[in-house]
Design a protein around this nucleic acid. Structure first.
Length: 425
RNA sequence: GGGGGCGUAGCGAAGCAGGUUAUCGCGCCGGCCUGUCAAGCCGGAGAUCGCGGGUUCAAGUCCCGUCGCUCCCGCCA
């Protein structure tokens, strides 16, 4: 019966089968050591002959688990040569090394050879951690009575004015890839679900090419009824982040350690300051010694450094964005809005806010953004027949992953990133 | 969309006051080796120097164009 590499310690002096990829071969002639890798980790095999297989071939072996202080983990598998099976031979000329530190590899080499680079333990850890984020996000949402939804990614019109749309040929008409599930999650709140969340792709046809942009990313979307202001949403996001961070800390201790990374403690999440857009500009201006008109990426880093120093946490909620900086559906508050961003370790990972839920207010607002009721008739329908006050936000999955691990490029946090030039593999 | 940097073997790099056969590490192939831990030692193969054009007796090296990558800005999650 097959056991996992990480489990053999529990099978001392027993006969077991291991199966996996050949991670490393150290042949000394009459004795050879092979590091076998499977989803759980690695184990050392001892062979009495020179291996005939190549690195990264998939093999299965049987043997007795023996204790030996000279073995890497104190135990190793003394392989019964007869039992060795090469299940799938790998070409010896690997495009990139799997058993070396990937820090030396260029991002291009890693992404061009994605199928192979994901075998590199350190790289696969990124996605183990990302999986934990997804798990604890969904778990937390359910614990607060949110319904998980999956909405169409083919839409008739855009929602996030300003951001580009990818046109899609749809029979004899043209539709677009959704920039966000914005309209649908609002519609479902109004449908009576009250609280919904969606984990799904979002598409942005921006020609940006930066270490923090993807043209396709995974959005952790939340929308909730019966709120009064963005502060209810910030409270919710803090609870979500605490769950995610605690879960990641429990499940991914190994990954965090390997990456020399850490997640904020619950007290730190609780102490993330909430400052207005105007206050943020003032603080950044003071620290940079010049007037600040917009919060640019450098400003985002500066304000997070400030939060770290003043509040002991490397994150900040920025509220009160001016109306013209936010989409038309954002609930106004004077010439500001009930909206917020979350900057985490110098990068924006969330945008959200209360939405306009009053039909009349919406109709008044549309012209200010050059929009018409006719052009947004489906959307306007949501508010015609009773829609509670509500709001929501979205967390960028890859960005959150990137910031937790300190990755230098968000593409590293996407299994198969799509950017301006890359549509493969 | 604007600006900077870089393209040399499968991977990572050196060579760039122009000058014989383009160098190093890892990997790969062959040999030796019974306790390896990025094993070690010996030998070997592997490069149209991104592509196109130009200057020159001579171009990886200089000039122009082009493609690709990368970083910064704008915009966003």
């Amino acid at each position: 019966m097959r056991v996992l590499a990480s489990e053999i310690t529990g099978y001392k002096n027993k006969r077991v089968e291991l199966a996996g990829w050949v991670h490393r071969i150290r042949s000394l002639g009459k004795i050879s050591f092979v590091i076998l890798r499977d989803r759980s980790g690695t184990a050392q095999l001892v062979l009495d002959e020179k291996p005939e297989f190549t690195h990264e071939s998939v093999i299965s072996v049987q043997g007795i688990v023996k204790e030996n202080e000279k073995a890497p983990d104190g135990v190793e598998l003394q392989v019964d040569g007869e039992s060795l099976k090469v299940l799938s031979a790998a070409n010896p000329e690997l495009p990139i090394p799997v058993n070396q530190d990937p820090k030396e590899l260029s991002l291009d080499a890693v992404l061009d050879n994605r199928i192979i680079s994901l075998r590199i333990p350190r790289i696969r850890q990124i996605f183990t951690l990302q999986s934990a984020i997804l798990k604890y996000f969904a778990q937390h949402m359910r614990s607060e009575g949110f319904t998980e939804i999956k909405t169409s990614k083919l839409i008739g019109t855009g929602t996030e004015g300003g951001t580009g749309l990818f046109p899609v040929e749809y029979f004899d008409t043209r539709v677009y890839l959704a920039q966000s599930p914005q309209f649908y999650k609002q519609a479902l709140v109004a449908s009576g679900m009250e609280r919904v969340f969606e984990i799904g792709p979002a598409y942005r046809a921006e020609k940006h090419d930066t270490p923090r942009h993807l043209n396709e990313y995974v959005s952790l979307d939340v929308e909730m009824a019966f709120i009064e202001s963005e502060h209810d949403l910030i409270d919710l996001e803090q609870r979500i982040l605490k769950s995610i961070f605690q879960g990641v800390k429990e499940d991914c201790a190994k990954e965090l350690e390997a990456w020399q990374a850490s997640v904020p403690e619950p007290e730190e999440v609780d102490s993330v300051p909430r400052i207005t857009h105007d206050e943020a500009k003032e603080i950044i201006g003071k620290l940079q010694g010049r007037r600040v008109f917009e919060i640019n990426p450098e400003g985002e880093r500066v304000i997070c450094d400030w939060a770290k120093k003043e509040h002991g946490v490397d994150a900040v909620f920025v509220t009160g964005f001016p109306r013209k900086k936010r989409p038309f559906y954002t609930f106004p508050s004077g010439n500001k809005t009930m909206s917020f961003d979350l900057l985490f370790r110098g990068l924006e990972i969330t945008t959200g806010g209360r939405r306009i839920n009053d039909y009349g207010m919406l109709l008044e607002t549309l012209p200010r953004f050059g929009l018409t009721e006719e052009g947004l008739s489906d959307y306007c329908q949501i508010f015609k027949y009773g829609c509670p006050p509500h709001g929501g936000f979205a967390i960028g999955l890859e960005r959150l992953t990137q910031q937790i691990l300190g990755l230098s490029n968000v593409k590293e946090a996407s299994l198969f990133p799509r950017d301006r030039k890359r549509v493969r593999p």
